[in-house]
């Protein structure tokens, strides 16, 4: 079993799970397949020797973000969508076409990058010699990207305050104010 075969197995599983995330009717099924997806991606990162990113991926994405999703799904008790029919409108198709076209163009441009760009000195051997992936990433993160790092922490603080304010129960609201939208509308 070479690394290439392993990659193909992982890629096939990632594809399947991605399709299941958007294709399944039950939101909890989607969330579970999203977890599988993120875990498999972490495996692919680990195969690329990006151990730090792989660990962070599982820790933050699979371990915290998707748990939040599952938590909200259970809190709101969303079993099914109101009606399962996929309604396709012309603006949707136009948007899909534009997205697809621009994506193909970008993909072509990106695919040409390796031949155009100058290859840096951080080959896997150089990273291993410099003290391992985590050390190298940490050095770059805390020197070259110090200010973006600080900004990211402020962003997290803002998000924390914002989500508390938004999700807080409105004390002024009267009991009868909650309005349910008629499903036949």
């Amino acid at each position: 079993m070479t690394q290439l075969h392993l990659f193909y197995v992982f890629a096939a599983l990632v594809t399947f799970c991605s399709v299941m995330v958007v294709g399944s009717r039950n939101p909890v099924t989607s969330a579970v397949f999203l977890v599988f997806d993120l875990f498999l991606l972490a495996g692919i990162y680990a195969m690329m020797e990006a151990h730090f990113v792989a660990a962070i991926q599982v820790l933050v994405y699979a371990g915290a973000i998707v748990v939040l999703f599952v938590f909200v799904i259970m809190l709101l008790n969303l079993e099914q969508e109101s009606h399962g029919k996929v309604r396709v409108s012309i603006p949707d198709i136009v948007m899909m076409g534009i997205t697809g076209l621009s994506f193909v163009i970008i993909a072509f441009l990106v695919a040409r990058v390796p031949s155009m760009a100058t290859v840096g000195e951080m080959t896997p051997e150089a990273i291993a010699a410099a003290g391992g992936n985590t050390y190298v990433v940490g050095m770059v993160l805390f020197t070259k990207y110090l200010w973006p790092f600080e900004l990211a922490s402020i962003l997290i603080l803002l998000a924390m305050v914002a989500s508390i304010v938004i999700a807080k129960k409105d004390k002024a609201a009267k009991p009868g104010r909650r309005r349910t939208v008629n499903a036949n509308q």
Binding site: M48, E49, A50, F52, V53, V113, P114, A117, V119, G120, E121, M122, T123, P124, A126, I127, N133, V136, V137, V140, L141, K144, Y145
Partner: peptide, 12 residues
């Protein structure tokens, strides 16, 4: 891209 370009900025 980190792997092909030999540059760890992508992981950051």
């Amino acid at each position: 891209a980190t792997q092909t370009l030999g540059n760890v900025d992508g992981q950051v």
